[in-house]
Design a protein around this nucleic acid. Structure first.
Lengths: 188, 188
DNA sequence: CACGCTCTAGGACGGTCGTCCTACGAGGCG
DNA sequence: CGCCTCGTAGGACGACCGTCCTAGAGCGTG
């Protein structure tokens, strides 16, 4: 197997484990076992655990950019795009119930650890924030665009945290409905 | 010093450290150093780390009950009480910016670790949820009371997560204003 | 075949973790 | 005074952590 492919496998496994168990609670041994590599050999591909985290965040950033681009292709209206974001808590409902929001939980963990990669993790939030702001600007709300973007972001985080804690899908559905109503006052 | 007083000191220090650094990232050595005790001696007071967590959660539950009771004494109207809860994100704004919501972050961490004490941590949320539900019932919204309680809870969690990630007090202030407006449509 | 490069296995390292054990000082009580 | 209980100090324990090192397998290329 080529080195690049192995590296990619490592990032994939680390991504999944960091999400499911948290960054700190995931050890090299866990990742190695998931990929089927020996523990010590890791340092051929990544020279530290932080380096893996860096690669994972970079991978998530790329994935997020791709998802946002896809929404822009699929949804003709800014309102529809914002709604697509809002409904993520339903689309990924099962994962969020079990593991929380991948962006929110990573940010919370790294912020609490005062980890050096904290700023990069926040970049995941910023990606959504900027994208949402653009959609609200297109809706003719340029002045409030950032405030509205943060409001929608706060919605998703609040729902994710409580969905994770209570595992209540009905609650998520109700909150999405609420947000849908609120959004409809801003046009399509 | 009496054993009970030492025990209380341990719980206090553990409470603070679990909040500031997270449960898993706090070691016995950290708590021992904070209290000024030897590491090994801990097992005279607590026979495991989980036992300390249990005591910390119990202590937080008691503290929360006390706070809710105090709000009932200070605020004559249910609307005022709900507002007192909403404004927690400003009252404890500095701590939340640095360490997140103590209830939310603990729940998120324990849920992700699939920790046995997860249910007890959720009890902290339930305490607020039931109390908020009661306030909305007093406002004559018995049918929707639980939904509205969860909505307010989701607000606080969303704001806390983003406040923690972005450290933006102005955002918190705006969101509280939004929530205040929304609340005012439900009467005092 | 022999060389060199890529990738791997396996284990050693120093440190820290949660846990447990033993010995001892302090102080009230017979 | 001697005893006994309470609270403590300090270190041992096995396990696991992130990190690092070395030896060698596999294989394309000269």
């Amino acid at each position: 197997m080529s080195g690049a492919a192995t590296r990619e496998q490592i990032v994939e496994a680390a991504d999944r484990l960091f999400y499911q168990r948290g960054y700190e609670h995931t050890s090299f041994a866990d990742i190695a076992a998931a990929v089927g590599l020996s523990r010590g050999n890791f340092y051929y591909h990544f020279k530290s655990k932080d380096t893996i985290l860096d690669a994972v965040i970079e991978s998530r950033l790329a994935g997020t950019r791709h998802m946002l681009q896809q929404w822009e292709n699929e949804q003709p209206t800014p309102g529809g795009r914002i709604l697509a974001f809002v409904e993520i808590v339903l689309t990924n409902g099962a994962d969020i119930q079990q593991y929380g929001c991948p962006v929110g939980t990573l940010n919370t963990e790294l912020a609490k650890l005062d980890h050096s990669m904290r700023g990069q993790a926040r970049g995941l939030f910023t990606l959504f924030r900027d994208w949402l702001r653009e959609q609200f600007t297109l809706l003719g709300r340029a002045e409030q665009a950032d405030e509205l973007a943060m409001h929608v972001l706060a919605f998703s985080q609040g729902v994710a945290v409580l969905s994770h804690a209570f595992r209540d899908e009905e609650f998520v559905r109700r909150e999405v409905g609420r947000m849908r109503d609120w959004l409809s006052t801003y046009g399509k």
